[in-house]
Design a protein around this nucleic acid. Structure first.
Length: 436
RNA sequence: GGUGGGGUUCCCGAGCGGUCAAAGGGGGCAGACUGUAAAUCUGCUGCGGUAGCUUCGGUGGUUCAAAUCCACCCCCCACCA
């Protein structure tokens, strides 16, 4: 299947500035730029380094980039070191806190490293818009770029309209100009002719296209990806613990795996299409599976998605740890799949040590041991002592699979087997406590 | 700059001197049921080893007592200029 059709079949696109042209360019690869014809499309996607890790909400454009790159096109990863200082108002109810330059620079470096797992950096261009914006003088920018923007038009943009209700600072209002300038710059310096982004980026992308036409007389294109929601209409990628991060220090590999494994039945097909590299025909078959067997599709989804972010070794461990705890869906291999998950042997004695682990110092087991409530909070299973108390009161606390009812329980060395004990908050939140 | 209306716990939103850690809803967490799903029902949802302690934009004041009254300040919204 050709790349454009492939992306379309998987549901990657939401809107296009010119669908036919984009299809033609991506399919043929021939891109006319400034009286030349290039053999591939150079496209860009921007990420604002507002945190030191990406989360699954960023994954859709990343997967699209990966696929386009594998199809021979050239991705430009733009990290918004400058734009993050301004803050994109698109899709946001209120302004976000202004980051310091140091934070932004550190975040940008972290994002670059993570993106390297998904796309080959050897064959991509990595840029940071701080590199050009810090050179630009305010008055020059206003005269070269600012005069080409119509306030009337900007006010009509959906992203601005929304914020007009709650308030929008001039700083944020300027964001659109900066992103538009990025496109102009990348077109000029790298022959970039397409920009992709989330649904909320439409206004910014279109502004960039207009600016490129006005300043360079070049026709460029853009498309957006859909905003992912779960079957509840909730924003995708948020769980109890907050966002699901790609950084394993923030979201453990096990929890990352479990995030995918616990998706809604109704979302399996969509998620397989977006977040795995399995062929669409196979995805169609997997998502047709009937209920108990459908869990195999979820395992495959979780394994594949985890393998992309953390490597297949880590994914296998998470699969075994989770399966060891909750059971495996298809040990007999009745369900055909091209996923490497079939090579992972379930009967191995792995599993338990790959659960999220908390190290407890022996010295904390003073006197009559450690208080159970404290252990719940220290290990990160509960955010506060009060929460731990409520958990016990509600019957959701387990030690070594035994329900805890006593809030004053003291944990002693006798509760550990081979220096390890299993603590659970509810059925799914597990922490392995290791004595050291 | 003027006039009017606002800023409440994760979000929305009631409260308008004590009975307020603050109604109701959403969200979230847990339990039951299940397939580690959904739906449903039930409980919980500021911190605290439970004596207390901090919350209602900020600061100061009135009062035995303030989210509630007063003063000043900050921010938002609407209309006017």
């Amino acid at each position: 299947m050709h790349i454009f059709k492939e992306l379309e079949a998987r549901g990657f696109f939401y809107q296009f500035t010119d669908k036919n042209q984009i299809k033609k360019l991506i399919t043929s690869g021939k891109t006319p730029v400034r009286n030349r014809v290039l053999p591939k499309v150079t496209f860009y996607v921007g990420f604002d380094p507002t945190a030191d890790s990406l989360h699954v909400g960023h994954l859709l454009p990343i997967m699209a980039m990966r696929r386009l790159q594998q199809a021979g096109h050239k991705p430009i990863v733009l990290v918004g070191g400058a734009t993050a200082l301004v803050g994109d108002p698109s899709g946001k109810q209120e302004a976000r806190p202004i980051l310091t330059r140091e934070q932004v620079a550190a975040n940008a470096a972290a994002l670059k490293a993570q993106l390297g797992n998904f796309i080959s950096m050897d064959d991509a261009i990595f840029v940071n818009n701080a590199d050009w914006f810090t050179e630009i003088r305010f008055l020059d920018f206003l005269r070269d770029v600012g005069y080409r923007f119509s306030i009337n038009k900007m006010l009509a943009a959906e992203s601005v309209k929304q914020r007009l209700e709650t308030g929008l600072s001039y700083l944020e209002f300027s964001y659109m100009l900066l992103q538009a300038y990025d496109f102009y710059f990348l077109n000029r310096e790298h022959d970039c002719t397409m920009q992709f982004g989330g649904q909320d980026q439409w206004g910014n992308i279109v502004a960039g296209i207009d600016l490129v036409r006005k300043m360079s007389s070049q026709e460029v294109f853009g498309a957006t990806f859909p905003l992912l929601t779960d079957s509840q209409g909730q924003k995708f990628g948020k769980t109890a613990a907050g966002a699901v991060w790609l950084d394993s220090a923030r979201t453990s590999v096990f929890d990352y795996y479990q995030f995918w494994r616990n998706c809604d039945d109704a979302d399996v097909k969509k998620l397989l299409g977006f977040f795995t590299m399995l062929p669409v025909e196979e995805i169609a078959q997997l998502s047709e599976l009937q209920p108990p067997a459908l869990n195999r599709a979820k395992e495959i989804l979780a394994y594949e998605a985890t393998a992309l972010a953390h490597g297949s070794g880590e994914a296998a461990k998470a699969y075994l740890a989770a399966g060891g705890k909750f059971g495996f869906a298809d040990q007999e291999r009745k369900i055909p799949t091209s996923s490497k998950i079939v090579e992972v042997k379930e009967n191995q004695q792995v599993g338990i040590q790959d659960l999220p682990t908390y190290e407890l110092l022996k010295s904390e087991l003073t006197g009559d041991g450690i208080w159970i409530i404290k252990l719940f909070t220290d290990s990160g299973l509960c955010a506060s002592n009060g929460e731990a108390r409520r958990l016990i009161k509600g019957g959701g606390a387990y030690l070594n699979d035994q329900r805890i009812t006593d809030q004053d329980l003291q944990i002693t060395e006798a509760d550990f087997t081979d220096n390890a004990a299993i603590l659970k908050a509810g059925k799914k939140n597990i922490r392995r406590i290791v004595l050291s």
